[in-house]
Amino acid sequence: MEMNRDKSVDFEAVRARLFALAYRMLGSRAEAEDIVQDAWLKWHAADASALRSSAAWLTTITTHLAIDRLRHLQIERATRSGGWMPEPWIESLAPSAEDLALQAVQMSYGVMLLLERLKPEERAAFVLHEAFDCDYAEIAKILAKTPANCRQMVHRARERLQREGVPAKRADPAAHARIVERLRAALEAQDRAGLVRLFCEVPSVMSDAPDTADAVATAEQAATTLSMRGRGDQIETVTMNGMNAVALMRDGEIDALFDISIDEDERIVALRIVTGALRLASATRVFGRAAILQLLRPVSRQAASITMRGHFPVDIDA
């Protein structure tokens, strides 16, 4: 019983980090949860006395489980007519252990999207090196390859991502946040001229909506749609995969997410739009109306117990 308790403690100490690794590998919260559960089952069945490092063992088994799962998923995703986009990670109003772990290993949504084009082992090597700061010797042990081979995989992956449009340097967060706010304001005001000024001459666009070809036209279409919004519709700024993004809210739920990349001149060079209900479901759970009400419930109960006696608030339930 003591050994089982210690194994549980060891697992819980790294569970959030394992989840962050699985999510970066698979781009899906549900798939990441399944991988972590499978890792726990294997860990529970393993002979603890034969293990030198629980964190290293769990990182290795989680990586291999994710690689195997990704091989199947890539075949399945390739057959989808509308293409596939990763599930956005929206930081909750009350950050969880998983939120904090993902903050520590930030990787933008644009990078996550392009990682889909890498082979599973290339993706694993890149994620472990770039997001988790593993050196090539550590990655070699995890993937059962030589350090030189792992260095080459990461180098090839980085070159390919740069060819596909990932900036060599991460955008300045303050500049990025500034442009996101201008995009939000232009959409809210249905300011066509303002929208056009935000984009470079030939921006790229990707969306899970059909027939999306032009970033500015797509943004304008969103602005037109918003002109017919109801009383409960609004546009908010959210934290999406570690960077600011624009959320179109309808009846307390996220209806669409706009994620951008900017260049050194602070022009939008890429726009990614997520509208699929299944991909947005988890985002709504942590940022939608229900999440806000849940967060405010304790405050509401406390406020209900406060009354005024003279000029002084008195807690009548105390």
Rank of each mutant, 00 (worst) to 15 (best):
Q221V: 04
M243T: 14
A277H: 07
V269N: 11
A219Y: 04
N241R: 12
I292W: 13
R279M: 04
L257V: 13
I254H: 03
D251H: 14
D259C: 08
S305P: 00
A303G: 09
Q294L: 07
G242H: 14
A223V: 06
V269W: 02
V299W: 05
R289Q: 12
S261Q: 13
V286A: 08
A270S: 10
M228L: 12
S282V: 02
A223S: 08
T237R: 15
L278T: 05
D251Y: 12
G252S: 08
S305Q: 07
R289P: 02
L295Q: 14
L293S: 09
R229F: 08
D255S: 06
T224N: 09
G276S: 10
D263H: 05
R231Q: 14
Q234F: 01
A219C: 15
A256Q: 03
S300W: 01
A245G: 14
V286C: 07
V299I: 09
E236Q: 09
L278F: 06
M249P: 02
V238Q: 09
E264Y: 06
M249T: 07
F287P: 00
S227Y: 03
I273R: 10
Q294G: 12
Q294M: 11
G288I: 01
E253C: 04
I268D: 10
S227C: 05
M243L: 15
I292H: 06
D233W: 00
S227W: 07
A277L: 09
L271V: 00
Q234Y: 03
V238P: 09
N241C: 15
S227K: 06
R297C: 05
I268T: 11
R289N: 09
L295W: 11
G232V: 00
V269R: 13
S261P: 01
A245Y: 13
T224C: 03
L248W: 06
S227G: 14
A247E: 05
I262N: 15
A222Y: 05
R272A: 07
T237P: 13
L248H: 08
L293N: 10
R297S: 15
F287S: 08
M240Q: 15
T224G: 06
A223K: 04
E220V: 10
S282L: 03
V274I: 13
I254S: 01
D259P: 05
A303R: 11
S282Y: 03
S227F: 05
V238H: 12
T239I: 09
A290K: 04
I268P: 08
D251I: 07
S300G: 06
A256R: 02
G276E: 07
P298I: 12
I260D: 04
I292M: 13
R229I: 03
E264W: 02
L295Y: 10
I260N: 05
F287W: 12
P298H: 14
A247R: 06
Q302P: 01
Q221T: 08
Q221S: 15
I273W: 06
V299Q: 13
